[in-house]
Deep mutational scan, measured.
Amino acid sequence: MISNAKIARINELAAKAKAGVITEEEKAEQQKLRQEYLK
């Protein structure tokens, strides 16, 4: 099960992506976390 901290990070990265200020490194982290969440 995914931790609350990881869910919070997913939401934080989603907000950054929506604002258009996300880095390529953060995009990769976001994809990794989303895949983990979906498992």
Results as ranks from 00 to 15, higher is better:
1 M>T: 12
1 M>I: 14
1 M>R: 13
2 I>S: 08
2 I>R: 05
2 I>N: 07
2 I>H: 08
2 I>Y: 05
2 I>E: 10
2 I>T: 09
3 S>L: 07
3 S>A: 10
3 S>D: 09
3 S>I: 10
3 S>K: 08
3 S>T: 12
4 N>R: 14
4 N>L: 15
4 N>M: 15
4 N>G: 14
4 N>E: 14
5 A>L: 10
5 A>W: 06
5 A>I: 10
6 K>L: 15
6 K>S: 08
6 K>P: 04
6 K>A: 12
7 I>Q: 08
7 I>Y: 05
7 I>D: 02
7 I>V: 09
7 I>W: 11
7 I>A: 06
7 I>S: 06
7 I>C: 15
8 A>R: 14
8 A>M: 14
8 A>F: 05
9 R>D: 01
9 R>N: 00
9 R>I: 02
9 R>Q: 02
10 I>S: 03
10 I>F: 12
10 I>Y: 14
11 N>H: 14
11 N>Y: 15
11 N>K: 15
11 N>T: 10
12 E>M: 07
12 E>K: 04
12 E>S: 04
12 E>H: 06
13 L>A: 01
13 L>V: 00
13 L>K: 00
13 L>R: 01
13 L>F: 02
14 A>I: 10
15 A>T: 07
15 A>V: 08
15 A>E: 08
15 A>N: 07
15 A>D: 06
15 A>L: 13
16 K>T: 01
16 K>E: 00
16 K>W: 02
16 K>G: 00
16 K>R: 12
16 K>H: 03
16 K>P: 00
16 K>V: 02
17 A>C: 14
17 A>S: 09
17 A>D: 08
17 A>G: 04
18 K>Y: 06
18 K>F: 06
18 K>R: 13
19 A>G: 05
19 A>F: 07
19 A>S: 08
20 G>I: 01
20 G>F: 03
20 G>M: 04
20 G>Y: 02
20 G>L: 03
21 V>N: 11
21 V>R: 09
21 V>K: 12
21 V>E: 07
21 V>Q: 11
21 V>T: 15
22 I>K: 01
22 I>F: 02
22 I>N: 01
22 I>C: 00
22 I>G: 01
22 I>A: 04
23 T>Q: 02
23 T>D: 03
23 T>L: 03
23 T>W: 01
23 T>A: 01
24 E>W: 06
24 E>C: 10
24 E>T: 06
24 E>K: 08
24 E>I: 10
24 E>R: 07
24 E>Q: 09
24 E>N: 10
25 E>D: 10
25 E>F: 05
25 E>L: 11
25 E>A: 10
25 E>C: 05
26 E>F: 00
26 E>M: 01
26 E>K: 00
26 E>N: 00
26 E>L: 01
26 E>D: 02
26 E>H: 00
27 K>H: 05
27 K>V: 11
28 A>W: 12
28 A>F: 09
28 A>H: 09
29 E>M: 03
29 E>T: 02
29 E>V: 02
30 Q>H: 15
30 Q>A: 15
30 Q>N: 04
30 Q>Y: 15
30 Q>M: 15
30 Q>E: 09
31 Q>K: 12
31 Q>F: 08
31 Q>M: 13
31 Q>I: 12
31 Q>T: 12
31 Q>Y: 12
31 Q>V: 11
32 K>I: 11
32 K>D: 05
32 K>A: 11
32 K>Q: 11
33 L>F: 03
33 L>I: 04
33 L>S: 02
33 L>T: 01
33 L>C: 01
33 L>Q: 01
33 L>K: 01
33 L>R: 02
34 R>C: 15
34 R>E: 13
34 R>D: 05
35 Q>N: 07
35 Q>S: 10
35 Q>V: 07
36 E>N: 04
36 E>G: 04
36 E>K: 05
37 Y>N: 06
37 Y>M: 12
37 Y>H: 05
37 Y>T: 06
38 L>V: 09
38 L>D: 13
38 L>F: 11
38 L>C: 14
38 L>T: 10
39 K>L: 13
39 K>C: 14
39 K>T: 14
39 K>Y: 12
39 K>W: 14
